[in-house]
Design a protein around this nucleic acid. Sequence first.
RNA 1: GCGCCUCUAGCUCAACGGCAGAGCAACGGACUCUUAAUCCGCAGGUUCGGGGUUCAAAUCCCCGGAGGCGCACCA
Length: 486
Amino acid sequence: MTVPYRFEQTAMAAEVAARWGHLSAGEESGDAVAVAGRVMLARPQGRLAFAELRDSSGAVQLFALASATKDFDEFARLRLGDWVGARGEVVRTKRGELSVKVGEWVLLAEARRPFGDKWRGVTDVETRYRQREVDLWANPQSRTRLLMRSQLVRRMRERLWDRGFVEVETPILHPIPGGAHAHPFVTRHRALDADFYLRIAPELYLKRLVVGGFERVFEIGRLFRNEGLSPRHNPEFTTLELYQAYADYEDMMALVEELVADLALDLCGSTSISYQGRPLDLAPRWRRATMAELVEEATGLPLSVHTPRDELARAAGDLGVPVEPGWGSGKLLLEVYEKTAEPSLWEPVFVRDYPAEVSPLARRHRSDPELTERFEAVVAGRELANAFSELTDPDDQRTRFEEQAAQHEAGDEEAMVVDAEYLRALEHGLPPTGGLGIGIDRLAMLFADATNIREVITFPTMRPERLHGGDPEPAPGADPGSSEGD
RNA sequence: GCGCCUCUAGCUCAACGGCAGAGCAACGGACUCUUAAUCCGCAGGUUCGGGGUUCAAAUCCCCGGAGGCGCACCA
């Protein structure tokens, strides 16, 4: 069966419903349309046949009569999943279903593989993730989530453009992995005979653009971290990073709460949303609290980066937080915070003033050099954003890099190394700058009420499928003698 | 990496030591207004793979595979 190279569609299913919805049962409009889509239900009935045709806008019924429909017998044999284009008059059937009364029609694609249970669909999670094309048809929620994510990114872009930010693209192949504390993927460039790392953060390149005179830049793109998979972690994930010259982390807090609240309005219709059955109010102004304050709230202990290291280590041990010998007070405080305070946070909080020890790219706090002007936005107990007043001083940056490099030498493979290229850029002058990163996947999970990151990633990372000889298993019912290819 | 759970027809699931089943899909047929159409008929299986226990294994045990959840990792 040959299929045409194109089909002239004149109306979407939703348009048919909107324009001819007024027809009463048994009424014929006299208007002809051409619709196209996938057969989701088929009800052949002797000299009559009905089919539900679904396109990206919705569904419309096809109504065929042996006396009026070309190739009626073939039409009555259409299978679930077949793609069809049909031309005919818009009518409402006697039983009240708005329909296209099919005159001519054409098969646009045959579904050789069965489409799953027509009522219960496909629920096997592996099939849903590995064969998303099947999931998207079988489960409307999957389609909705993907659309929601698309809208999220679109509205985010629009709101940033409105604020004067310029969207840029920076390299994904990095000669030195930097900008985050993470294991990179390594790859090899043959002609250059050099290793490259898939980026773990775009941060350093973006700040170089600020040095270059782009006072407000952002990038929405994929990051790659060579880590374990979990319901909240995918090896490749999407972030927004933005930099704003002349701004500090207080400005970034205002930006985050306004942006997230606006997006909630756009996507959920309200800043009061519900996540996993619990109400969550995203309206500004969000609570601001220092890490030390939250630790004291959670533990009752007045701990800070100035607590003597031994005392902090003992307190951590008492709280059941594992301690490693190389950790200073800053790392210890962070660990205690993450284990005791963070999980119990629900309403949005800006957790501010992170220890300098664990924030090598953030500027020291204006009132305490052991701290930085850094915050994380925690919503529903999860990190949603990370931001700081950027470290602009090349000398301090070199010092921080060297501290990181020492940790790297000491065995922390995720610690940074000295990035001379970046230091050279800073020496050309980076003005005071506020920087911000937001995990798009996490944000999408929040708005989609999803607990698994794979629900908001179209094709999540999976262990490679082993399909023999590179071919999938044969389609059930396919004639083994006539399969294409070899 | 560790722990728990899961894997049965194309899909969704039952059978839980005693003949592998149902609904839907498919296939053949009936039906001129269906709505998960209905009715009749037919077919569909390496019960994830391998090994073991047993008169008898989808079921119990061991090894392996795939997946889920949790933990660890993830500033």
